[in-house]
């Protein structure tokens, strides 16, 4: 995480996510109202907003699960209207609700998801060792998932989301309901992942976590009302913390 500069982020090959005038309507309801933003390779991008602001809708579009009503977006160079299968192969996704299979062992879960992403067994084995090694959970490899505490499960779910070394990983409230130590360990995993060049697109309701992002966007009623580094946002809104920035923007309806 850089608080002063964004020098570890490279845009040599253009932004990894590019969104132009993106609109999504459900009937007369405008869930996403002309969104414009780009995300750079290796960036940790915080996507904030109140409940119901339209974050999940936008995220589903960026993941190739839903089409925009109008506007354009490319993810890792692929078009969200026409190349959704290619998008899915190049991203990882983890939501708070997404859970691994409780009746399978840790290894079986890794093998299952690795297989879905088309990895060879040898590669899955190698990545599993590497990812479990980082978590210090090699000893849990053959444990059934339901015997594993929630905090560890969240970390395992994150590892599974990056098993195929995607270009971007989308994390939808990955730390909801998690204790303060585990939350911090989770963010250390995020930083490590970003250092490897994987772009991290993350939502959270913990405003201290917004401070860990390279840049943060704040969405209110379907529109992006602010987008900058946490430091700049605090300066602009004369706020002591990201919590204050958020309260000022999200409450001013």
């Amino acid at each position: 995480m850089q608080t002063g500069s964004l020098e570890h982020i490279s845009d040599n090959n253009g932004p990894i996510i590019e969104v132009q005038d993106l609109v999504k309507k459900f009937g007369s309801f405008v869930a996403n109202d002309h969104l414009n933003f780009t995300v750079s390779r290796g960036e940790i991008f915080g996507f904030l907003g109140a409940n119901g602001a339209g974050k999940t809708t936008a995220m589903r579009i960026l993941c190739g699960l839903s089409s925009p009503t109008s506007g354009n977006a490319t993810i890792a160079g692929f078009n969200v209207y026409t190349q959704t299968e290619k998008i899915k192969r190049n991203i990882g996704y983890m939501s708070q609700k997404f859970s691994l299979y409780d009746d399978l062992t840790v290894w079986e879960n890794f093998r299952f998801y690795g297989g879905i992403y088309g990895l060879k067994t040898e590669k899955i084995r190698e990545r599993t060792e590497e990812l479990l090694g980082r978590l210090g959970l090699q000893g849990e490899k053959n444990k059934i998932l339901k015997e594993i505490p929630l905090g560890w499960k969240q970390k395992l779910a994150f590892s599974v989301a990056v098993i195929h070394q995607p270009k971007i990983v989308f994390l939808d409230e990955p730390t909801g309901g998690v204790d303060p130590i585990t939350r911090r360990q989770f963010w250390e995993m995020i930083h490590e992942t970003a250092k490897e060049g994987i772009t991290v697109f993350v939502t959270t309701h913990y405003m201290d976590e917004a401070e860990y992002c390279d840049r943060v966007s704040i969405m209110v009623d379907g529109k992006i009302v602010a987008l900058d580094t946490p430091l700049k946002l605090k300066e602009t809104y004369r706020a002591a913390s990201m919590e204050d920035v958020f309260l000022k923007l999200a409450r001013a309806k």
Binding site: G49, A50, N51, Q96, E173, G176, G177, H205, M207, E243, F246, L247, A250, R251
Partner: peptide
């Protein structure tokens, strides 16, 4: 029981 988990900062307040 965790009434504010997954709830945004404004609604939590």
């Amino acid at each position: 029981d965790e009434p504010t988990t997954g709830v945004d900062a404004v609604s939590r307040k």
